[in-house]
Nucleic acid binder design. Structure first.
Length: 219
DNA sequence: GATTGGATCTACT
DNA sequence: GTAGATCCAATCG
């Protein structure tokens, strides 16, 4: 499938320099495009989550500024990419004004362009599973630490809008966070097969595995 | 320097 | 429903 993105469709910094909840609510339906040399991969955003300020217990900025989360304190319209759980990168988009730590986590995409590259990177062929979940979509698009702090004005990564009318968007509590999951800051396109509807909010119910402590664990 | 826990995913029971 | 993989960053000493 060939997809042509016109330069004037790329979202500018003014789009991100607004309320995080507005940005997170408007991003579903937009397209994330990643260019790695001749490889172009793109997907339609179908699920997001908002992380807002040091007051938000689930936000990385909750305990103040650190070298890791410094990008969130920077100007809007930049990518905040971090590594977690030993094997997953997360893609966030910095929002609001410089100095205020807030970002939108991209949780799921619908593969649109460069699907062969995604299959190549993931080793998975089911298009519904290719970009479902924040760790999976970064793997499919080839996003890693080197994207941290990059401007979403391109050229390596950018977001653009569609001519189609905005899709209807539903909200629920956030996934995978222990505190703050009560806030309806997760936005998604309902009934989309690519939405990571699996195990909604079950993380909070999972006990911290005592067995993971050193004993007998070769690492 | 060592320890701890994490904005996850998958396979297995 | 549960456990294991996997490693970085923050925290504690």
């Amino acid at each position: 499938m060939v997809w042509v993105f016109a330069a004037n469709d790329v979202l500018g910094q003014d789009f991100y320099a607004r309320s995080t909840l507005r940005v997170a609510g408007e991003l579903p339906g937009m397209y994330v495009v990643v260019k790695e040399g001749r490889r172009v991969t793109a997907g339609k955003i179908i699920e997001t989550e908002a992380y807002i300020g040091e007051e938000d217990p689930a936000c990385h900025a909750h305990r103040g500024r650190t070298p890791r989360n410094a990008v969130m304190y920077g100007p809007p319209g930049h990518a905040y990419v971090y590594f977690t759980y030993g094997n997953h990168f997360m893609l966030n988009i910095v929002t609001e004004h410089e100095g205020f730590p807030a970002a939108v986590l991209i949780r799921a995409l619908e593969p649109v362009t460069g699907i062969c590259w995604m299959i190549d990177r993931r080793g998975v062929e089911d298009p519904n599973r290719l970009c479902r979940g924040p760790g999976n979509l970064t793997a499919a698009l080839g996003i890693d630490r080197s994207f941290n702090g990059l401007s979403l004005a391109g050229p390596r990564i950018f977001v653009c809008r569609d001519n189609a009318p905005s899709p209807c968007v539903q909200t629920t509590g956030r996934v995978g966070v222990n505190e703050g999951s009560d806030r309806p800051w997760r936005f998604f396109i309902p009934n989309h097969p690519g939405v990571s509807a699996y195990r909604m909010g079950t993380k909070a119910m999972r006990k911290k595995p005592e067995s993971r402590k050193r004993e007998g664990k070769t690492r």
